[in-house]
Design a protein around this nucleic acid. Structure first.
Lengths: 243, 243
DNA sequence: CGGAATGTTGATGGTCCTCAATTCAAGTGG
DNA sequence: CCACTTGAATTGAGGACCATCAACATTCCG
């Protein structure tokens, strides 16, 4: 379940070097981090951290995708965050977290002992600054999601979700009809969007029937009409961009 | 609308001194902040910042309550944050914000020129560290709210809201039947909870009929049965506390 | 091949939104 | 002080949207 990986990647060659919590670090600081870090891998479906469990390490996601989720007594579940490579898990100054962290696909983490890392945060402005930026970015994302959860219709939620995936997978270029991997199950998508899995399935079918998207198989789709998709999200054409 | 206030409060005597972004600053740093700061006041209902507007200053809330909200093209509105004294407005490294900031009651801000403040953040670890903590606290709050918006019923939302107010107004002691001020209109509460104002009104009436709360007038209520209220929130009895 | 997990589709009902009428509270001006 | 106005809150009726329950199809994997 929790397989410590030995592959000793050099920080300087790390794929998340320029975006993770270490992004602003200079060579000396990087050397220090290098001496502290350990890698851990988790298989798809594994729980990385349980809510309330004492937090012994903090970590950066090196590869894979993990989700943060909260569950109520009666089983209702809501995802409250999505962690992609370079995102940070855990928070200095707190001994536990208030949600579960789960690997949705195979995940590799770059881990640091929490106590030692906290000390480092206090002594290394570059890390505190970057951690602040990461937290503020996540806060922006969380706020967008609050609008979705509180006010959008099922169809708008699904369209927003698809548009997000499309934006993320098309790497800069607007190549429209690439095949996009859904990664998650209908149930996970439902928990992400505050819906039931049946509603998710129905809305996918509806968007397909309306020619907005097309499915190659159940986990892969293409965007057939990007303009229509944008329209369905309910968002402004411009996301608050200055002219 | 935007009344620059002249009252020159000394930082050392500031009511939010130990909790705001300046909390960790030493005397020298405080002196520097003191030379940069200006106060501004806003009346209840005033918009402090518009979405997309160039952000010329960042600020700490000294007194009052402000809300962050997002509005869709067709008018649907969702509050995405609540700012209380010591909370921070604006983010270094970004020239605009993606939501409106509105004063719900009279608000006084301690403002800093954005460009100068950003420079300060980079040079003053104590500020970056505190800003990081504030951002992480807000992130925790945002995630709790995402569970509410995505999964809770109208009744649970209202109960959670009331419980939050009760917890906040009873200052530490569990004095049960204090009169609690609602501050907001039904419409604002609805936008906070992802409901309509009619549903808010109906749920208030229902909780009153069931003897959980009692209204002294439309803006003031008392908690008659705290245990029942807790039960209605849908939250665990323990908020993930370690034993 | 068989069983489990996942996904689709249909029928039905409940929750909450929408629309509308009425009540209530707080001013305002004669 | 009392009509009049105005905005906020309450209450009711009806319906839309989405959840629930259920049956069935599909895919995955031993």
């Amino acid at each position: 379940m929790n397989i410590p990986l030995v592959a000793p990647i050099k920080c300087s060659q790390c794929p998340i070097r320029h975006r993770a919590v270490c992004a602003r670090c200079d060579d000396d600081e990087l050397l220090l981090l290098e001496s502290m870090k350990t890698y851990r891998s988790f298989a798809a479906g594994d729980v990385i951290l349980w809510r309330g469990e004492p937090l012994e390490f903090v970590a950066s996601v090196v590869s894979g995708v993990a989700t943060l989720s909260k569950t109520m007594e009666d089983g209702r579940t809501q995802m409250v965050g999505l962690l992609l490579p370079s995102d940070f898990i855990g928070r200095p100054g707190r001994e536990q977290i208030d949600f579960d962290v789960t690997a949705t696909v195979d995940v590799t983490l770059c881990c640091f002992d929490r106590a030692r890392f906290e000390k480092l945060v206090n002594e290394t402005p570059h890390i505190a600054q970057r951690l602040m930026e990461l937290a503020l970015d996540e806060l922006d994302a969380a706020r967008d999601w609050m609008l979705l959860l509180g006010r959008k219709t099922a169809r708008e939620k699904i369209a927003t979700f698809i548009e997000m995936l499309a934006r993320r997978s098309s790497h800069g270029l607007d190549g429209s009809s690439d095949v996009i991997d859904l990664h998650m199950t209908r149930d996970q998508i439902a928990n992400y969007l505050g819906l039931t899995l049946e509603t998710v399935s129905r809305q996918f079918s509806a968007l397909k029937k309306d020619g907005v998207i097309g499915f190659t198989d159940r986990k892969h789709f293409t965007v057939e009409d990007m303009a229509a998709l944008q329209e369905e999200t309910g968002d402004d054409a411009d996301g608050g961009v200055v002219y």
